[in-house]
Nucleic acid binder design. Structure first.
Lengths: 147, 147
DNA sequence: TATTGTTATACTCTATAACTATA
DNA sequence: TATAGTTATAGAGTATAACAATA
């Protein structure tokens, strides 16, 4: 059971715990990405483009929870390495459509593989009986947090 | 089941999801603390002192995962409001023992109540069958992340 | 010399607001 | 005028190194 009374009696805040866990994950992730010469936010951009091009940069920025002005440095780096392309939208030339290149997808998949392996190792600490429930709960919380 | 294969097929990285969830929690938490004129890190300091005084400031800083130099602004603020006390350790006068005052404990409990209520509301989105497992898993991950 | 608390400096990151080009 | 992308400026947050007191 997880009634309000039980929850209130927990030693630590959920926020504090999440903060600690996330910090560890980010540290491990940064190291992995560093080995492939990819910055954290650049990886986030690549990952956001995985399911298809972004019609606007502002849209892309919103998708990863960033300001559109801070997205630009990432796009400059990525475009400079041929990992993404920025093409003007013929229908409205103010917009630039951002697309993943084959090289970009290749690098993304490599990074993602590294990161998934690291996360799987981390989750191995969680008793197997709770693992699926944890991931389901996280899906729900993350979905709710994006709106 | 949550086998490696299933996990690798997840749409989003766990890190990205945690990042999104934590951002939402921190935003809500900041608003609650703001209403009581308490800064986030100051709250972390109060919470860390809940189970007893800290023998050294450096120790306290490590407990909340902060640099000892950045702890000082918090302690200055808190001591200025009479929420904590910094007393020189008689055995080693280099050290300063940090203690929660009654007023500090009162404010801490009030803030904590606000935050727990907010977190409980957030967790209400998670199907009840998964809630306890999620919290158990989080306990485990957080414990592992602190070492 | 080493350690604790503290202060000072430089650096990074972030937020805000301007600028351009299109519409 | 309004919007998308971009650039520039100022502010907050962070890391690093120095400093004084004590051991």
């Amino acid at each position: 059971m997880s009634e309000p009374a039980d929850f209130a009696a927990r030693r630590e805040d959920v926020g504090a715990q999440l903060h600690r866990v996330l910090r560890r994950i980010l540290a491990a992730e940064t190291a992995l990405l560093d080995a492939r010469d990819v910055e954290m936010w650049d990886y986030a951009v690549l990952a956001a483009l995985r399911d298809g091009p972004a019609q606007k940069q502002a849209q892309l920025a919103a998708a990863i929870g960033r300001d559109r002005t801070r997205l630009i440095a990432s796009l400059d780096r990525l475009a400079g390495r041929g990992l993404v392309e920025r093409d003007p939208d013929p229908d409205d030339r103010r917009n630039r459509i951002v697309t993943l290149t084959p090289a970009g997808r290749e690098l993304l998949d490599a990074c993602r593989g590294d990161i998934r392996a690291m996360e799987a190792e981390l989750l191995a600490d969680v008793p197997e009986a709770d693992r699926a429930a944890f991931l389901r709960a996280l899906d729900r919380l993350a979905e709710r947090a994006s709106t």
